[in-house]
Design a binder for these strands. Structure first.
Lengths: 113, 113
DNA sequence: CTGTATCCCTACTGATACTG
DNA sequence: CAGTATCAGTAGGGATACAG
């Protein structure tokens, strides 16, 4: 998603940009309870997502500063991802989203549209 | 954004899908305080957004059930958009997002990356 | 185990023009 | 005033293959 003149000014536009990745919310959710290895993350993601995509999304989140990447120098490699400080603060949003998401799912199934 | 097998099941995946429009958060924010006319909405949006795009985004939000479209039969036409019931419930998310968005903006300006 | 380089393809945006 | 049709450009995801 390309930026616009309100990025960095308006909290909504800025959030929208950061959350534009197709899997960002889900990944952030999986990292809520502590560090998770790359492989473990992939295992917990929907099968429709390949490791290529996961790698890209994680890179974006790291670049945006929401996630930290910790490399343990071993063979084979061991890389853990975890929420940064700003990422931790995002938990409040995740919590609100989880609540609303479930309400919305209930709404969807109610009128079966 | 295309769907995946968790849409309608997982609150995060479902939310992500609904919020995928480039301007969805901003529009929902503008509708928080009551009905707004199409023209007025456009006036309040960033200039980089044309009325074609606004129209499409609104249509998506209406289809997804977050926004209601109310037509007053006049000439010239008068169409108001407002939050639906599920849309109203989304205010909690907007509130959390506004808080976090501002924290994130502060974080961004702090290390000037 | 983790990550990157490609390529293809789709979905979305922005621009322009036209309608009731 | 509100909306749609159309088209071109592009950003992003999925697949495959390869690498440290």
């Amino acid at each position: 998603m390309q930026q616009n003149e309100l990025f960095g000014k308006c909290p909504y536009v800025t959030s929208q940009k950061v959350l534009s990745g197709k899997w960002s919310l889900y990944i952030l959710h999986l990292l809520q309870d502590g560090p998770v290895r790359f492989n473990e993350l992939q295992r917990r993601m929907p099968e429709s997502m390949t490791h290529t995509t996961l790698s890209r999304q994680l890179k974006t989140l790291v670049n945006d500063g929401l996630v930290l990447r910790r490399v343990h120098s071993e063979i084979p490699p061991n890389v853990e991802y975890e929420l940064s400080d700003v990422g931790m603060k995002f938990k409040n949003v995740l919590s609100a989203l989880e609540t609303w998401g479930n309400e919305y799912i209930a709404y969807l199934s109610q009128d079966e549209k």
